[in-house]
Amino acid sequence: MSRRFVINLVQGETYLQKLNGTTKLGLFLIVMVYTMMSFDLRLLLPLFILSWIGLASLKPNYKLILGLFGFIFFMNFVNIILYYAVNQDVGSSYLNGTRTVLIQFNSYWYLTIETLWYLSVRQFKMMTSFMISMVFILSITPGELASGMSGLKIPYKISTITSLAFRYIPEIFNDYETIKMSMQARGLELDKRRLNVFKRLKENLMILIPLIFTSFDRIGNIANALDLRGFGQGKSRTYYCEDPVTSRDKLFRGITILLIIFCISFMVYQNVNHFGMWFPFKI
């Protein structure tokens, strides 16, 4: 197990990273809703472009991002191929029922413009969703995530769950390593050079169960440490890692509010008019 996560544990210095946690989380959530509600390329495309700009501003490790991008692209691609294989007219049901055959491969297999369009938009939507998640994850730290949740009036006990979880993830890796080390030091053979895959899988299970138990054995001690420093005392708490709200934050919060209004109106409009997907090739 490696300890390199995609999420940063220490705050960076770029524009987006410097935003207040609440701003980031609020914006992320509404943009998520925006992506989910829209099957409309006109809505998705600008977001997709913006997310790349956002990503670039974070000066990320492109090798990692592109690797993940490729992986997600592939996973979703397999998915839409399956969709196609199961129902060649899947697009029509989303596009008001029209059916325009583009290519007829043989007597059974064909491809319609509607299906091609629908599947492409879906793939695009999934990639947009991936991109904004990426920007969000790279711009926030676990601590800000917790303070952001509080800022959104989520009870602080829930946000503490999140920050505690992130606090103990490295500890779980450590536990895994030490349990493995401890087991190996007592003679459990785990070396790749010594064992075949199946044997290793079985031996790995011998680490897993102590890992789960060790983690749960910690609960008492950690809870004591929290209680002793007054955790859960008041109705609210403050956050040391919280950045002050700057004019930059106000700008982004404004955008968030506009987006909320837009999303609500859009959904109402969609439902009232039974408006399907946007499809430029409608005949």
Binding site: A165, S215, I219
Partner: peptide, 27 residues
């Protein structure tokens, strides 16, 4: 507090095992 810690550690463990404790079966 114990419950909160249990959920947190549970979630952390769940997250780690989802990432590293499995084999892909199907997309």
């Amino acid at each position: 507090t114990k419950t909160i810690v249990a959920i947190a550690l549970g979630a952390a463990l769940f997250g780690v095992l989802m990432n590293y404790g499995g084999i892909t079966v199907f997309t």
